[in-house]
Design a binder for these strands. Sequence first.
DNA 1: CTATTTAGTTTCGGTTACGAAACATTTAGT
DNA 2: ACTAAATGTTTCGTAACCGAAACTAAATAG
Lengths: 126, 126
Amino acid sequence: MIVEISDLQALDVWRRTVVASVRCDAPDLSARQMSLLLTVYLTPAPHTVRGLAELLKVTKPAITRAVDRLTELGMIRRKVDENDRRSVLLQRTVKGSVFLREYGELIVAAMGGDGEGDATGLPPKY
Amino acid sequence: MIVEISDLQALDVWRRTVVASVRCDAPDLSARQMSLLLTVYLTPAPHTVRGLAELLKVTKPAITRAVDRLTELGMIRRKVDENDRRSVLLQRTVKGSVFLREYGELIVAAMGGDGEGDATGLPPKY
DNA sequence: CTATTTAGTTTCGGTTACGAAACATTTAGT
DNA sequence: ACTAAATGTTTCGTAACCGAAACTAAATAG
């Protein structure tokens, strides 16, 4: 029962955050793209296509495409591994750091609201 | 400084949750689709296309398409409003409830998993 | 030196999504 | 009744994305 309430509270923080990010006109990233971006920024390097494909249990082309998209958005960068020139290392960028920092702030704002402020700037109905 | 750490902790919970959902082979929903689904389930009815378009600041066709997709996935349902037959009410389904309940469990697991320590000895807020 | 394995990308056919504009249907105004 | 407004969907042309398989380039084995 308490767990149920906790689940609902957690989901509601999630809702407020995602709604705020959509309203802010942030790029409409898919779960795959977001998981890739967060992994590159928050887990220790090196990050390769193969490693991410295994971590996320998706195909390599799916990773390549997500990297393509995130590169277009300027949130990530490719760099050939000089120790093994077959490998591509995925690296952070300033723009990606800014985006994720702001995203973190959205989450914290959504947590702080807890029933009043909701980071959407709208009345509490939504 | 403390805020920075808090942001990073929040982002890491987010990362663990999204990575887990991708690994679980959950549907690869976009931020828009997820925000729509969460809003229908966690905010008071009625939910209409127009209302959601305004809430999320996206076009009505974008909402129609997201509803199409979520309907195909069985996570949401359309119902004509009998008081104003122009309107379509968006309603919950069992499948959607199950999906979101499991998603909430993923978030809670990501919070408890590791790295939540803040050296205060106090339990995490959620 | 050739064969095999490995890493990542590209191709293929088909699906999903986008905004703008046009659309049908229903309600409200006069 | 006849017009005007509102709601949601469809169409249009375009871009993103999917998994499977073919592919290039680099490293390793025999």
